[in-house]
């Protein structure tokens, strides 16, 4: 095995096995966080992990609804990954939805909104990749709740778009990684959108604060539910893992509860 230190998150996602195809291939990963504990560090980690030199075939299509390119560049650079270089290499495609927030605007009132156009752009990008890289593409969406804003509050359009993104996972074997905020739906009696997404999900990562409140050296806990049936040499892996994390400037520490004093 390579010298790169594996962390608990990688293990929980099954990334510790250097298998071909890529373990997340064709999977839908949903990160759910809340106001108290932001889950965006999971995205940063997955960005870095996906673009790592060990897996040169991976590409990322990043739909940024909440932050700009320079924001991500700055953060991921500290983790040891240069997004500018990756973009030039054609491994990182950044769709800045901030600038064209409300993708509807351009299309005008022709009805369907900007999502079909966005989808087409994405599909063209994946279709233009070299043949053997197509199933190594990862679609990342950094804030699903803002998609709703972009669609002028029409959940239908967002769900349609998500459906089409889902078809990409089965057609090309892409993976889909999304971030959503759980607590904004908590007052709803029937949070259909969130539930709908949870039904689609193969791997659910929940980012929560500690039940006991804030602590200096533990920033929160992660629960990873791996629903997909993994076929790793018949070993029945623990499909639910729960561990604590601490976000640092240039990385994240993961540890089991009680193992750090």
């Amino acid at each position: 095995m390579e010298n790169r230190a594996l962390n608990l998150l990688d293990e929980a996602l099954g990334l510790d096995h250097q298998t071909d195809p890529w373990p997340l291939c064709g999977k839908v990963v949903l990160v759910e966080d809340c106001v108290e504990t932001s889950g965006c560090f999971v995205l940063h980690q997955l960005l870095k992990r996906t673009l790592s030199p060990q897996s040169p075939n991976n590409t990322i299509i990043f739909l940024a609804f909440s932050h700009s390119f320079s924001h991500y560049d700055r953060i991921v650079r500290k983790l040891g990954c240069n997004l500018v270089a990756q973009r030039e290499n054609g491994r990182f495609f950044f769709f800045d939805m901030l600038k064209q927030l409300c993708p509807d605007e351009k299309e005008g009132k022709t009805g369907k909104g900007g999502f079909p156009a966005l989808y087409r752009k994405m599909q063209k990008t994946i279709g233009a990749l070299p043949e053997n890289n197509q199933n190594h593409a990862t679609i990342m969406i950094d804030d699903m709740s803002l998609m709703e804003v972009a669609a002028h509050g029409s959940l239908e359009h967002v769900l349609d778009f998500m459906h089409y993104c889902h078809t990409l996972t089965s057609e090309f074997g892409c993976s889909l990684i999304t971030l959503n905020h759980e607590d904004i739906y908590s007052s709803m009696e029937r949070p259909t959108f969130m539930l709908q997404m949870e039904y689609l999900t193969d791997v659910l990562i929940k980012v929560e604060p500690l039940a006991t409140g804030l602590a200096a050296d533990v920033h929160g806990q992660l629960t990873v539910l791996n629903r997909g049936i993994c076929k790793v040499k018949g070993s029945s892996k623990n499909k639910i893992s729960n561990f604590h994390f601490k976000v640092k400037e240039n990385g994240v520490d993961y540890f089991y509860p009680g193992t750090r004093t």
């Binding site: 369907k112 079909p116 989808y119 087409r120 599909q123 063209k124 279709g127 349609d160 459906h163 089409y164 078809t167 089965s170 057609e171 090309f172």
Partner: peptide, 21 residues
């Protein structure tokens, strides 16, 4: 499942993109 709203159809119509779907 593949194309419930005809988005892909439009894509094929708009360009000479060969669709694998």
């Amino acid at each position: 499942y593949t194309d419930p709203l005809g988005w892909k159809d439009q894509l094929m119509g708009s360009g000479n993109f060969t669709d694998v779907s």
